[in-house]
């Protein structure tokens, strides 16, 4: 059976469309709302959905996702909940699901067990932002991903040298995740000034499609990056919109999410 990420990428290429990846933090605003948000994102046209497993020290994330992680953990979200929610949702959505988890979450769970259980829950790819390629090799992470038909999504940054792009390209699978700028996640800060040159440089090293994330807060920023990538990622901007809702208002959160995504999706065609 083909990986659902590949099927979706092939579909995008065939239709001449760009893809949109969206983001939820498992347990934020509540465990009950997480599944509803995933379904709403799928309905509103998300092509890929990242489920971030909350971690106490998310050092690649800015204030929005830090607060969401903190709140999720404080409200009792456990690592196991991510697997439960993925299993509940993966059969009900068209968009492939990915886990975004920090290295310690994977390590504590056990790399092999994490990959096995993620695949069993219907997850199609993994993003581990603090597991660079050298460490991933050392941990046997790539082999574990391959054994369980998971794409390991590698990250590239504006400071990635040519050597590092080559190293990362050699292990890239599915697509690569390019940070639009140096720094942490967050909608406020915008894109790197030289983003076009940087993304062209990445393209030169890569055989797989490119996703771009960080700072894509609205349709204007989305339109700025789309010509240079295959998939755009919206994370903190979605979570910022949930911050204004009542934690228990699952319907309101889903409506807010759908409405925001529908302002973005017309840009993808």
């Amino acid at each position: 059976m083909a990986n659902r990420i590949d099927e979706r990428l092939a579909g995008l290429a065939a239709g001449g469309r760009k893809g949109l990846m969206t983001h939820v933090v498992v347990g934020y605003p509540s465990l009950a709302s997480t599944s509803a948000l995933i379904l709403a994102m799928d309905e509103a046209g998300a092509d890929f959905i990242e489920l971030q497993i909350p971690f106490s020290d998310p050092l690649a994330d800015g204030p929005t996702i830090q607060s969401a992680c903190e709140a999720a953990i404080a409200r009792g979200a456990r690592v196991q909940d991510a697997f439960t929610i993925a299993a509940e949702c993966s059969g009900r959505v068209r968009a492939p699901l990915l886990f975004m988890a920090y290295a310690n979450t994977v390590y504590r769970y056990g790399t092999e067990a994490f990959c096995r259980d993620a695949a069993a829950a219907g997850i199609s790819g993994l993003i581990v932002p603090d597991l660079p390629t050298e460490a991933a090799r050392h941990e046997g992470y790539f082999e574990a991903c391959r054994r369980h038909d998971l794409h390991n999504i590698v990250t590239l940054a504006p400071t990635s040298t040519s050597d590092r792009m080559t190293v990362n390209a050699s292990v890239a699978s599915g697509f690569v995740y390019c940070m639009s700028r140096q720094g942490v996640t967050g909608a406020q800060l915008g894109l790197a000034p030289d983003i076009q040159a940087y993304l062209r440089r990445v393209r030169g090293h890569l055989a797989v499609p490119m996703a771009v994330g960080f700072g894509i807060s609205d349709r204007a920023r989305l339109e700025q990056v789309l010509p240079y990538c295959d998939v755009a990622t919206v994370g903190s901007a979605l979570i910022d919109r949930l911050a204004g809702t009542e934690p228990g208002d699952v319907t309101g959160q889903a409506d807010t999410t759908r409405a925001f995504l529908r302002t973005l999706t017309p840009a993808l065609a």
Binding site: A60, D130, P132, T133, E134, S160, N168
Partner: peptide
């Protein structure tokens, strides 16, 4: 080891 984002590796 080194467990940091790619953005710090260089």
């Amino acid at each position: 080891g080194r467990f940091v984002p790619e953005a710090l590796m260089a």
